[in-house]
């Protein structure tokens, strides 16, 4: 593994304004580095998807932003506050879907739980909460401990959205939801974004489920970002090139460090390269490759290329 291969994509989003930033964020559990010098930048109003395999640090990062995990080094700013110092204040301003799907107190009814949350959040929109509850088909008389995983997730979504928070932190929000409910959730999120100015961070390893909502992408691996950029830039700048090449072809040296993933061998290669399309095509052609096709990648494919390219080099 070399660092040149992982430095291919940008991770600096510039000057903001940002709803969430971390600088050099580090967190260790025993000898395990969960977060390893992480520089997160979530622009205000963005729908930012955090992609990465299990164990990459996604949940630890979100829990750190919530002030539920103490970090050991670096700085964190969530809506202008440090969650380590002003945790309760930060949590009141966030709509949060935890990785864990159990809600509230086992003995409470769902209706009682919603009332309980309404008191906690001054901006609670009772009418909106009722509308969401109806759309999700949630029975307010049910006891929390009798809810299935999918029903719990729906209750959590109502709790997260109904106070129209400026920031939503959604940790695997579609986990446990069946097809129909997942589809309804995406429709609800689209309307929510149209109605309320909100910044959203979604952590998931099933990015294809939320891809049409996303406008920023961060790829996380072993507690570090391999790339952090607007979705449109990823779409235009990370491309897959199919080319016919002569036997023994090694490729142009000038692309070193920009090839995210190499697959195939002479006579036909398939490379995923970061950079200007015309410049890369020219580079490949001048080195003797006949480029047959160039195509963009979905966020899912891009993340996979980055993560597996890292292992392959």
């Amino acid at each position: 593994m070399t660092d040149t291969a992982t430095a291919a994509l940008p991770i600096d989003l510039g000057n903001g304004p940002f709803a969430v930033t971390t600088r050099g964020l580090a967190k260790r559990f025993g000898s395990t580095r969960a977060l390893d010098g992480l520089d997160l930048q979530v622009p205000e109003g963005a729908v930012y998807v955090l992609v990465g395999p299990n164990g990459a640090g996604k949940s630890t990062l979100i829990r750190t932003l919530m002030g539920l995990v103490r970090y050991q080094a670096g700085t964190v700013s969530v809506l202008g506050r440090d969650p380590a110092e002003r945790g309760a204040e930060v949590r009141a301003a966030i709509g949060y879907i935890p990785e864990d799907y159990r809600v509230g107190y086992a003995w409470m009814t769902v209706g009682r739980l919603l009332e309980h949350q309404a008191v906690y959040h001054p901006s609670w929109d009772a009418e909106y909460a009722r509308e969401l509850r109806t759309r999700y088909g949630i029975d307010p008389g049910r006891k929390c401990h009798t809810l299935s995983k999918g029903q719990s997730r729906r209750v959590q979504l109502v709790l997260a959205l109904a106070h129209r928070p400026p920031l939503l932190l959604l940790d695997e929000p579609t986990d446990g939801l069946d097809h129909v409910v997942r589809d309804e959730t995406l429709s609800i999120l689209s309307e929510h974004l149209a109605d309320s100015p909100t910044t959203v961070v979604i952590s998931t390893h099933r990015v294809y489920e939320v891809e049409p909502l996303v406008d920023h992408v961060g790829v996380l691996s072993e507690g570090r970002l391999l790339g952090q950029l607007p979705r449109d830039e990823l779409y235009g700048g990370l491309l897959r090139y199919w080319a016919d090449v002569p036997e023994g072809w090694t490729g142009p040296g000038e692309l070193a460090g920009r090839v995210v993933r190499r697959s195939g061998a002479a006579p036909a290669i398939e490379w995923t390269v970061w950079g200007d399309r015309n410049a890369v095509t020219r580079g490949l052609s001048q080195a003797g490759a006949a480029v047959r096709e160039v195509a963009p990648l979905s966020v899912d494919e891009a993340a996979l290329a980055l993560l597996s390219g890292r292992e392959a080099t």
């Binding site: 589809d183 689209s190 974004l193 109605d195 049409p212 909502l213 406008d215």
Partner: peptide
């Protein structure tokens, strides 16, 4: 409207 279309297509309203 932007809201209607984004909701029915399940896409970001900005799109």
């Amino acid at each position: 409207s932007v809201r209607e279309l984004s909701s029915s297509l399940r896409v970001n309203p900005r799109t």
